[in-house]
Simulated assay, not measured.
Amino acid sequence: MDAETRPRDERPERRETAAVACALCGVSADGVIAPPTWIRSVEDGARRYFCDECARTHITAIEGRLDSAWW
Rank of each mutant, 00 (worst) to 15 (best):
M1Q: 12
M1I: 02
M1S: 11
D2E: 13
D2I: 00
D2G: 14
A3W: 12
E4W: 00
T5A: 07
T5S: 07
T5W: 01
T5Q: 02
P7R: 10
R8W: 12
R8T: 12
D9K: 03
D9N: 10
E10Q: 15
P12E: 14
E13P: 06
R14L: 11
R14A: 11
R14P: 02
R15V: 13
R15L: 14
E16N: 14
E16G: 02
E16K: 10
T17R: 12
T17E: 15
A18S: 08
A19M: 09
A19F: 01
A19S: 13
C22G: 01
C22T: 06
A23G: 02
A23K: 07
A23V: 03
L24M: 06
C25A: 10
G26F: 04
G26E: 12
V27W: 04
S28L: 09
S28V: 13
S28A: 15
A29G: 07
A29T: 08
A29S: 15
A29E: 14
D30L: 03
D30Y: 02
I33W: 05
A34C: 01
A34N: 09
P35R: 03
P35D: 03
P36Y: 03
P36H: 06
P36A: 05
P36N: 10
W38L: 07
I39E: 11
I39T: 11
R40T: 13
V42S: 15
V42K: 09
V42L: 13
E43W: 09
D44A: 14
G45Q: 07
Y49P: 05
F50V: 07
F50I: 04
C51E: 07
C51A: 09
D52Y: 03
D52S: 10
E53H: 03
E53A: 01
E53M: 00
E53S: 08
C54S: 03
A55S: 05
R56K: 13
R56A: 15
T57V: 01
H58T: 05
H58P: 07
I59C: 07
I59T: 12
I59W: 13
I62V: 15
E63S: 08
E63D: 11
E63Y: 08
G64A: 14
G64V: 06
R65E: 09
R65N: 03
R65C: 00
L66G: 00
L66Y: 06
D67Y: 10
D67M: 04
A69Q: 13
A69R: 12
W70H: 09
W70N: 08
W71T: 08
W71M: 05
